Simulated assay, not measured.
Amino acid sequence: MTLVALYSPDWASRPRPDTVVLLLHGFGSNERDLPGIVAQLGVDAPMASLRAPLELGEGAYAWFPLDQELDIAREPVEDATNIVWQWVDENVDPETKLIVVGFSQGGCMATQLLRTRPERIADTVILSGFVLDGPQPADARLAEERPAVFWGRGTADTVIPPSLVAAASARLDALTALTVRIYEGLPHSVNDQELADVKAHLARH
């Protein structure tokens, strides 16, 4: 499967950059949702925003199915992870590292990329996201190497249940050098302060 992607204007003119920014949108959105934040991240790198493969209708897409309780089956998540890696292998130079920014369900996908092929990841940014429960292929390596991860979420986020927040916190604490930022009154969204904190995080790493 070939994923649809939206590219920054310099994508074609910089075929072998050191890093690229990879954007992964949330459930029910599409590839046009996140590119507007890139200018605030302070990263001089080409950008690709991927459209998730599962079509929901009326311009909405998902990386894997979700029910109202946000129960998550492993196989669809791992299938989606493989689809993203297929796109990366076909479109990104093998020596180029990824700065992966994922919102909500896309945040889960960002952690999946890190937990499967961490050698390709320069940094991981999770915005209002969560983590797949259970082990993944590179977890032991991550626990030893402790790569940098940014995780931001709001106190008024009623979409991601507390159980998923707690599970993500435990998993990320165990596997990464985690930077957590919590924003008072922020719903299931992103604000300027969070983007400023992401910019500072990326500048440090």
Rank of each mutant, 00 (worst) to 15 (best):
residue 111 T to F: 00
residue 202 L to G: 12
residue 128 S to K: 08
residue 106 G to R: 09
residue 169 S to R: 13
residue 203 A to E: 14
residue 78 E to T: 13
residue 1 M to A: 14
residue 100 V to T: 02
residue 124 T to R: 10
residue 195 L to C: 10
residue 61 Y to C: 03
residue 25 H to A: 06
residue 7 Y to G: 01
residue 142 L to I: 00
residue 109 M to W: 11
residue 22 L to H: 00
residue 159 V to S: 08
residue 122 A to R: 14
residue 201 H to A: 15
residue 2 T to S: 12
residue 48 A to Q: 14
residue 203 A to W: 08
residue 122 A to F: 12
residue 94 P to V: 07
residue 148 A to W: 06
residue 42 G to I: 11
residue 23 L to E: 06
residue 177 A to W: 01
residue 33 D to S: 07
residue 95 E to D: 12
residue 50 L to A: 00
residue 80 A to D: 07
residue 168 A to K: 03
residue 103 F to L: 11
residue 108 C to H: 03
residue 159 V to A: 10
residue 77 V to S: 08
residue 56 L to Q: 03
residue 48 A to Y: 14
residue 157 D to L: 13
residue 38 V to E: 03
residue 103 F to N: 05
residue 131 V to T: 08
residue 2 T to M: 08
residue 190 V to Q: 12
residue 2 T to I: 04
residue 86 Q to I: 11
residue 51 R to Y: 06
residue 123 D to F: 00
residue 12 A to Q: 15
residue 191 N to K: 02
residue 103 F to T: 07
residue 132 L to V: 08
residue 86 Q to E: 15
residue 26 G to F: 09
residue 111 T to Y: 00
residue 55 E to S: 12
residue 113 L to G: 05
residue 80 A to H: 06
residue 62 A to P: 09
residue 83 I to C: 00
residue 150 F to P: 08
residue 151 W to P: 03
residue 128 S to H: 08
residue 141 R to C: 01
residue 24 L to S: 11
residue 100 V to L: 00
residue 62 A to I: 04
residue 161 P to D: 10
residue 181 R to H: 14
residue 196 A to K: 15
residue 70 L to F: 14
residue 189 S to C: 09
residue 108 C to L: 14
residue 74 R to P: 00
residue 128 S to P: 04
residue 68 Q to R: 15
residue 27 F to R: 12
residue 27 F to V: 04
residue 20 V to G: 12
residue 13 S to G: 13
residue 13 S to Y: 09
residue 17 P to V: 02
residue 162 P to I: 04
residue 65 P to E: 04
residue 45 A to W: 13
residue 122 A to H: 12
residue 130 F to H: 04
residue 63 W to R: 09
residue 91 N to Y: 06
residue 67 D to R: 11
residue 91 N to D: 04
residue 147 P to G: 05
residue 90 E to P: 03
residue 93 D to T: 07
residue 147 P to W: 08
residue 168 A to M: 10
residue 191 N to F: 08
residue 18 D to V: 09
residue 170 A to I: 01
residue 174 A to S: 06
residue 71 D to T: 15
residue 186 L to T: 12
residue 103 F to K: 10
residue 118 P to I: 10
residue 68 Q to I: 13
residue 182 I to W: 01
residue 42 G to V: 11
residue 34 L to V: 05
residue 24 L to Y: 09
residue 185 G to H: 13
residue 90 E to C: 11
residue 153 R to M: 03
residue 202 L to S: 10
